[in-house]
Amino acid sequence: MLNEKFKNHRIILASGSPRRQQFLKELDVDFEIQLKDIEEIYPEHLQAEEITNFLAKLKASAFTLDLDDNDILITSDTIVWLNNKALGKPKDYDDAFEMLTEMSGTTHKVITSVCIKTTIKEIVFYDETLVTFTALSSDEIKYYLNNYKPFDKAGSYGIQEWIGLVAIEKIEGSYANVVGLPTHRLYQELMKL
């Protein structure tokens, strides 16, 4: 569907995430990957989806001068929102351990924003999913961190990994959003473009 619609366009995914790349492949979209080094810093007053919207747009802005008329750029950002604060990618092992300890036995929000940018248009949208963790022991958290090393993931976990099988009691909303790309929303927005 999307390949037919965009056969005269070049779709660019600006993400090094293998999970986002896999989702686009599964949507049957031909795309190329382009990466730019962007310092993911946002104003401190931003809350929840304001943070991810800002960062998705920031990532897209780095490509403004590189886009041709037939290009469609897709950028994205994901955070975990817990106790009125953003949990992004952990700085190190100890930071990851602290995040997972804080999430243990609680419900948090996973928020992903997507920016679709062309030379004439910019669309930003977000999705959120509630994820409930069972209580995790220190040994379980250490086992997960040592064996899966989720240091490139917001909130220090991947729902598609071991921790998702043993610790996630309930999700309300899109599973794909928790993995890092709300595919249902992305598909709808691209079809409307």
Rank of each mutant, 00 (worst) to 15 (best):
M1Q: 12
L2A: 08
E4S: 11
K5T: 05
K5L: 15
F6W: 11
K7S: 14
K7G: 01
I12A: 05
I12F: 09
A14S: 15
S15Q: 07
G16N: 12
P18K: 11
Q21P: 02
Q22E: 14
F23N: 00
K25Y: 06
K25N: 07
E26T: 03
L27S: 06
D28G: 07
V29C: 11
V29A: 05
F31H: 09
F31A: 02
F31D: 00
K36C: 04
D37G: 09
I38Y: 01
I38D: 03
E44I: 11
E44T: 13
E49R: 12
E49D: 14
E50H: 05
K57W: 00
L58K: 15
K59E: 05
A62M: 03
A62D: 02
A62N: 10
L65C: 10
D66Q: 14
L67C: 03
D68F: 10
D68W: 08
D69I: 14
N70P: 01
I72E: 05
I72H: 03
T75D: 07
D77F: 12
I79W: 04
I79M: 03
V80D: 05
W81F: 06
L82P: 00
N83G: 01
A86H: 11
L87A: 01
L87E: 04
K91I: 08
D92R: 10
D92F: 09
Y93V: 11
D95V: 07
F97D: 02
M99T: 04
M99C: 07
L100A: 03
L100Q: 12
S104K: 03
G105S: 10
T107K: 10
T107R: 11
K109E: 15
V114F: 05
V114D: 01
C115M: 03
K117T: 13
K117C: 07
T118L: 08
I120K: 14
I123Q: 08
F125G: 11
T134Q: 13
A135S: 12
L136M: 15
D139C: 01
E140T: 05
K142Q: 13
Y143A: 00
N147S: 13
P150L: 08
P150I: 08
F151H: 07
F151A: 00
D152W: 11
K153M: 03
G155S: 04
G155C: 06
Y157M: 09
G158M: 07
Q160I: 06
Q160H: 10
W162K: 15
W162E: 09
G164N: 02
L165E: 12
V166D: 00
A167S: 15
E169L: 11
K170A: 07
G173H: 02
Y175L: 13
Y175A: 06
N177D: 02
V179R: 08
P182M: 01
P182V: 06
T183P: 02
H184T: 12
L186S: 05
L190Q: 09
M191F: 04
K192L: 14
